[in-house]
């Protein structure tokens, strides 16, 4: 672990250099993340004739802009990378290095965040400024936002790692990941604010881990939770992170055993 921490800054530097080399791709990926805007178009049309629930037209704008921001900051793509490397057999080269491959992947993902948002994030912030009366004013919530974003990213990354590792058993675990993506699109608040769901669905969605991937930080930005509740949610989020970390370790270990038995 000491070695890994020592190597981490260089991993980040290299990851950033790679992201810069792929700047055109990152730009396109960024523009492809447009689902919140598509949803915003619908809700804005709906809210022309008056607010829906507690959301006015401006409220929807703030919600989906914040969702877009969180998605760009906490996204990961390690599943695709792992599946590809398993298929091409280049995972072997990663395994030969004296550093945990997942740690290396995480550095690559983190290092690309500035590149992923280089154009979009300033734009989103400007648009958010236009609807600033919809944002929360409590500095405590804004402080909690930082660890919440980190938690969201970790949770996203770890779930992706687990599914990616399953690729050592199944030829393409990326389909499994698509299923996760579909379910989490709905339950994480990516498509619809969770409080617009019927009560029964909402109750379930609020305790599932999906909420902590996206909705939770968005709620913080909009100031839709009070301080104590926000702290409790942060604890819950990091509980999920810890569980995911444990699961990742288990799956990775047994995945490696299988790899060692069957080869890549």
């Amino acid at each position: 672990m000491r070695h890994a921490l020592k190597a981490f800054p260089q991993l980040l530097r290299t990851g950033f250099a790679e992201a810069v080399a792929y700047r055109a791709e990152f730009l396109i990926w960024m523009f492809s993340t447009n689902m919140p805007l598509v949803m915003l178009a619908l809700w804005a049309a709906v809210a022309r004739s008056g607010p829906v629930g507690s959301y006015t037209q401006k409220g929807f704008a703030a919600y989906y802009l914040a969702a877009l921001l969180v998605r760009l900051l906490t996204g990961s793509w390690v599943v695709w990378e792992m599946t590809m490397e398993i298929r091409q057999g280049t995972l072997a080269l990663r395994l030969l290095r004296p550093i945990h491959p997942l740690l290396a992947y995480s550095a690559e993902n983190l290092a690309a965040v500035p590149m992923r948002g280089i154009v979009a994030i300033p734009l989103i912030v400007i648009f958010l400024w236009n609807v600033r009366d919809q944002l929360g004013g409590d500095p405590i919530l804004w402080t909690i936002l930082a660890p919440a974003l980190l938690g969201s990213w970790l949770l996203t990354f770890l779930v992706m790692s687990i599914i990616g590792t399953l690729g050592l058993w199944f030829e393409s675990a990326s389909s499994l990941f698509e299923a996760w993506l579909g379910i989490s699109a709905i339950l994480s608040g990516y498509l619809i604010p969770l409080d617009l769901f019927p009560a029964a669905v909402r109750e379930v969605a609020l305790v599932l881990p999906f909420r902590f991937l996206l909705s939770f930080p968005v709620e913080l930005v909009l100031g839709r939770v009070d301080r104590w509740h926000a702290l409790a949610l942060l604890v819950a989020q990091w509980g999920y992170v810890a569980a995911a970390l444990l699961a990742t370790r288990l799956v990775w270990r047994s995945g490696l055993r299988r790899y060692a038995a069957y080869g890549g």
Partner: peptide
């Protein structure tokens, strides 16, 4: 799902 939710309101 989004349509179902939207048409609950309108």
């Amino acid at each position: 799902v989004p349509l179902l939710v939207v048409f609950q309101a309108r």
